[in-house]
Design a protein around this nucleic acid. Structure first.
Lengths: 214, 214
DNA sequence: CCATATACGGAGGCATCCTCCGTTTACAAG
DNA sequence: CTTGTAAACGGAGGATGCCTCCGTATATGG
């Protein structure tokens, strides 16, 4: 009450900010390496802070997951904004979707944790769903406005499909499959597959009727 | 060594079989209700057996997840066999995919556990992937043979897409979305979308361009 | 009915979670 | 620069859950 306004509660301390950052970094590393069930004490040790510090910043395991998750979402959202000015709308959409695949690919152990997050907090989920939906929305809108893809599929739909396609990433070659699925899906979105069958629209790269191609 | 053959180790005891079944049932219930991180002691209590019994049957938490998971897979595989004799091939495929959606819908808390399974055991994953892939494969083959859908998409691809579409099931209305996505995907698989845009093929039910419909 | 292999249950050692509080430190005012 | 103080730090320790081990109970074959 000594200061003027009750809303401004001082500037957060520098070491607090730094430690918070350290813990997040450590969490990402430890969970990616040792799976999402690694002990939080290991995370604290790896971050070079006491266990108490970790728990003050992230009161529960879930909270830590969430914080990491939120960061990832931020980055993907930013990427979408950058792609906003790309020349080809459909290609921009495709690029963003593909970026997601690569993004997930680097986080083996994290994914189970993220799965848990998705079912946990409602608030965060709303936020991230919103952020990503908007990211897709802008890319999608441009493509629709250009008359390149059908207009009865919402951004939410695309997001769900995307998550699905990134989801089964445990076998070798999953990435190839995911990318192929994306192409199929995008093809499916197109207003005119440039002919009767969608496969005709992809001249060079596709093998027709070979279900066993690596 | 007193008996004749080293392979036949007697018939398993009746109470053992019964208890094993009880634990599986309890696990399904407890995990569905309280999330996949519920304590195993709670599961044992709910099953009316000692904690030791639980651990003898399922040495690790993972093993318990796996056993539950395996059961579910069995049931889905069986359903596919039944649908084998349905008249409309494309419809049969669609029905099976839809059945999956409903199936997942009843297991809120379980899904995170199943996600963990998918990344855990290789052996089980191979098994279930195989079982489900074959289930789809038969349905898919019939539809392809009838010339109803394109032939360059493998059963694996469909499985991945399906899992994806079932995956984000936390908000109200997810089921509607999942079903819509399935329809889009199946439409995308079609050799001839019955016209230029696939939306023309679904006359009554669809609203065009309204992204905020409940 | 008996012998015995098999299964059961839960006590207890061990690891991890999370809280609580004495100590340390960054920041701002004088 | 000095000093007061709120904020952050760290880790000891109680609580909880994981999993093993072994004495007791029981189903099954003879």
């Amino acid at each position: 009450m000594t200061t003027s306004s009750p809303e401004i509660v001082r500037k957060p301390r520098a070491d607090a900010v730094r430690n918070r950052e350290r813990v997040l970094e450590a969490a990402k590393a430890v969970f990616s390496a040792g799976g999402s069930e690694a002990s939080l004490e290991a995370v604290a040790r790896h971050a070079g802070v006491g266990i108490g510090t970790l728990y003050r910043h992230f009161p529960t395991r879930q909270a830590l997951y969430e914080a990491v998750y939120r960061r990832e979402v931020e980055q993907l959202g930013d990427l979408a904004e950058q792609l906003q000015c790309a020349p080809e709308p459909v290609e921009a959409l495709r690029r963003w979707l593909r970026a997601n695949v690569e993004f997930v690919a680097t986080k083996k152990g994290m994914v189970a944790a993220l799965a848990l997050v998705a079912h946990g907090s409602t608030e965060l989920h709303a936020y991230s769903f919103d952020r990503l939906t908007k990211a897709i929305g802008t890319l999608l809108a441009r493509a629709v406005a250009a008359g390149a893809i059908r207009d009865d599929i919402s951004a939410e739909d695309v997001l769900r499909a995307l998550i699905g396609m990134c989801y089964m990433h445990d076998q070798p070659g999953w990435q190839t499959t995911a990318l192929r699925l994306l192409d199929v899906f995008v093809d499916g979105l197109r207003v005119h597959p440039t002919g009767a069958a969608a496969s005709a629209a992809k001249p060079a790269k596709k093998k027709v009727s070979g279900p066993r191609s690596p």
